[in-house]
Amino acid sequence: MGRNVIRIKNVKKIYQMGKEKIQAVNGISLNIRQGEVCCLLGKSGSGKSTLLNLIAGLEKPSSGQIIFNKKHIERMNEDQLADFRQRYVGFVFQSYNLLPTLTAMENVTLPLIFKNVPLKERNERAMEMLTAVGLGDRAHHKPHEMSGGQQQRVSIARAFINSPQVVFADEPTGNLDTRTTYEMMDLITALASKNKQTLVIVTHDLELSDYADRIVMLSDGEVERIEDKRQAEGEKE
């Protein structure tokens, strides 16, 4: 396995709910390696989603450090974070988060628009990406004209179009049926492994962890156990 792309050092996140303090993430230290599929597994309230938001720079930690390629994410301002997300990060959400007024193609090209990629090039790249996720014939449909699975494929295409170093997926199959779930996981891991991209998946579904190289089990905002499947396989051999 490659070097560490993300290093998390003793990160805490405390929410103030009225007079009560809630420790969502309670001192987690973790390294995520380049090119691995890392699964953050835990029940609802285990702090897995909060941890993902912290790593992706959507939220600021209360304390601790998150270092992405030697850069401290917790110290970045809004502009730097926007730039960071644009360059290095792709997102797949449970609820797809497509813009309803744009076609599949336009949704996929959106990250490239913000990156100032010329129209012709971005349309070519979007078409390639849509073909890769099996939606070449749906490029000009709007989200409401597509099934949940198809919408999630569009959002996967959008996450990968910019060739990000890391793709974050937050319960990517939460709204899909079992068969589609496997299709989606096959697709997303295949895309990631093709370009040796790192994939961080947050889920409560134990079955998804089958796709992971490493499973980080979270409970009450702390790391309960880390299961390194590659190492385990290596040991078996």
């Binding site: 502009d79 644009q86 988060n97």
Partner: peptide, 16 residues
């Protein structure tokens, strides 16, 4: 609001 959030998450700068 949601649309703005999505745009921000996928790389729109504050200036955009």
């Amino acid at each position: 609001t949601r649309e703005i959030g999505i745009m921000k998450v996928i790389g729109a700068s504050l200036r955009d």
